[in-house]
Design a binder for these strands. Structure first.
Length: 515
RNA sequence: GGCCCGUUCGUCUAGCGGUUCAGGACAUCUCCCUUUCACGGAGAAGAUCACGGGUUCAAAUCCCGUACGGGUCACCA
């Protein structure tokens, strides 16, 4: 549109935890801004005081910080819950005094008017209309002529009502029959006739602006160049276009993002879907203060922010190449708003875990070692060495999607088996098994107890005794790990060491081949 | 219901008038590797590009209808 500096904003309302759809909206804004060398701001839209939820703002800031989506301006810069930037404050409740003058400006220009109808009166009218067969009564260019407002009341009556403190709102005076067109960056031209639009409230009875006024005023004041938001805003975009026109302001470019759909059935993914579908819908855990219920988050589920963000980016966007694994910085480089898909994207948790698996494998070894050690400490209360961690990771990385898999998949690295897989015992453990293991233990005694040596000695034993791998291998696994699943058993043995291995063999023999 | 938006394998998507009887990824299945489980490798199956009309020498790609899906219709964002 113009050559002004790219400035975008993410403007959530603190009515609860931010869900993943919101995070994706923030992400696309961020990617767009960073790709174009612009600014990404976080503004809090808390004009509805009734719906304010304590902790929600902090949650939003924390969630974005975890994802690495860092605001340049507004709230949450540096992960802190404070205003930062030349257009402060960035919390709309703190900007309350600003909006009135703009509503007055519209009033003076004849683009808005006072309305004195109470919520109760409106409710009654809607009820009446509904029973008369009109399910959707609107305060619009037709009905306003029979309502209690600045357009129908005599001037002195309006002044009297205003002076007497009668509650009122300020509504936009929607033009009667006009085609409003704007070019959406993702959907191309969108056009709506004002016949279908109503006289939306701009300034509420409590003096607070509604979203429509606040968003237009703030976007203008904060020099926002592109409004990138969810598709649920598309129906009210024409109103916003009209407001820019009424104010005589340059209109930002619009881009309405496709919605995230539920994996089951239909409809958009909502906060209420929570854990009901077996996966988190929030980036971070959220504890409901009233019910004390916890809604689970991707972070606590073991996701890396990079994997989570990568997955989100691909829900509705694609670089046009076959590359799917991206870091945040790579996403910035590859991102283009024009490649955002138009249709809603159904979320698939399995693919989400695949993304994390890919990111797990791309972790640097040093970082992974530290994550592993911390995980083992937390899970088993054991401090393992870096060397141990590195070896364990090498052994288990191929079968893990999360760090927690690395830690949790092998409890037998940290404790003796307390049970032996019954099916395998029944199938593989014979009267000879104890003797075989005894001979192996003796053979291994002479080795350095490294994976290769253990395996070599094992093979030599098989050759000498004429036994097949199947006769002894599973038995050995059983004795050491209790299960037949897992990586090279010799690698596991090296890790846990000779003493422990011998003790485990003794335990298995005692339990499975009682003398 | 009105208005708006959308519709390519089960899912996420590539494709922006011809070189595509549609490519990739996840999931599924088969085989190989591994006498385990994974990983990896090779392959298979899976989309008459929602349907119907046009436009064009030529359409998944452009236009119009229809169907279906979604969003939205508050002094909520």
């Amino acid at each position: 549109m113009s050559d002004r500096r790219v400035r975008v904003r993410f403007a959530p309302s603190p009515t609860g935890p931010l869900h993943m759809g919101g995070v994706r909206t923030a992400l696309y804004n961020y990617l767009f801004a960073k790709k174009l060398g612009g600014d990404f701001l976080l503004r809090i839209e808390d004009t509805d005081q009734a719906r304010f939820v304590p902790g929600a703002e902090q949650y939003i800031v924390d969630a974005l910080a975890w994802c690495g989506i860092s605001p340049d301006e507004g709230i949450g810069v540096g992960g802190r819950l404070a205003d930062h930037g030349p257009h402060a404050p960035y919390r709309q409740s703190d900007r309350k005094p600003i909006y009135r003058q703009y509503a007055d400006q519209l009033l003076a220009a004849g683009h808005a008017y006072f309305a004195f109808d109470t919520p109760e009166e409106l409710e009654a009218i809607r009820e009446r209309a509904k029973s008369a067969g009109n399910p959707n009564w609107q305060y619009n260019s037709i009905t306003r002529t029979s309502m209690k407002n600045g357009l129908t009341l005599p001037e002195d009556e309006v002044s009297r009502l205003l002076a007497s403190g009668h509650p009122y709102v300020i509504r936009v005076k929607m033009p009667r029959n006009e085609e409003v067109k704007f070019e959406d960056r993702i959907r191309s031209w969108v056009s709506v006739n004002t016949l279908n639009l109503d006289d939306k409230v701009l300034l509420k009875g409590d003096g607070m602006p509604t979203y429509h006024l606040a968003n237009v005023v703030d976007d203008h004041l904060m020099e926002i160049s592109h409004v990138i938001r969810g598709e649920e805003w598309l129906p009210s975009a024409p109103l916003h276009v009209l407001l820019y026109r009424f104010f005589g302001w340059e209109q930002p470019e619009f881009a309405h993002l496709p919605l995230l759909l539920r994996p089951d059935g239909n409809g958009k993914l909502s906060k209420r879907d929570g854990d009901r579908l077996g996966f988190p819908v929030f980036p971070l855990n959220w504890v409901n203060e009233e019910t004390h219920e916890t809604a689970s988050g991707y972070r606590e589920r073991g996701f890396y922010p990079s994997g989570f963000v990568n997955m989100l980016a691909f829900l509705g966007w694609n670089p046009g190449t076959n590359q799917e694994i991206f870091t945040l910085d790579e996403l910035v480089e590859a991102f283009s708003i024009d490649k955002v898909h138009r249709a809603g994207a159904r979320f698939d948790f399995e693919k989400a875990t695949w993304f994390n698996q890919q990111h797990l494998r791309q972790r640097s070894p040093e970082v992974l070692v530290e994550e592993y050690r911390a995980g083992v400490q937390a899970e088993y209360g054991i401090a393992v060495s870096e060397d141990f961690a590195a070896k364990a990771i090498a052994l288990f990385l191929d079968r893990a999607e999360f760090v927690s898999d690395l830690v949790g998949a092998a409890p037998y690295l940290f404790a003796r088996p307390d049970a032996y897989e019954p099916q395998t015992v029944a199938k593989k453990w014979t009267s000879e098994s104890g003797s075989h293991l005894g001979q192996l233990v003796a053979l291994w005694e002479a080795t350095d107890y490294r994976e290769e040596s253990l395996e070599a000695a094992f093979k030599a034993f098989l050759a000498d005794s004429g036994l097949g791998f199947g006769a002894v291998g599973p038995v050995l696994r059983l004795a050491i790990a209790g299960t037949t699943q897992g990586p090279s058993i010799f690698g596991v043995m090296e890790l846990i060491g000779r003493l422990e291995c011998e003790a485990r063999v003794a335990q298995a023999v005692a339990q499975l081949s009682p003398a």
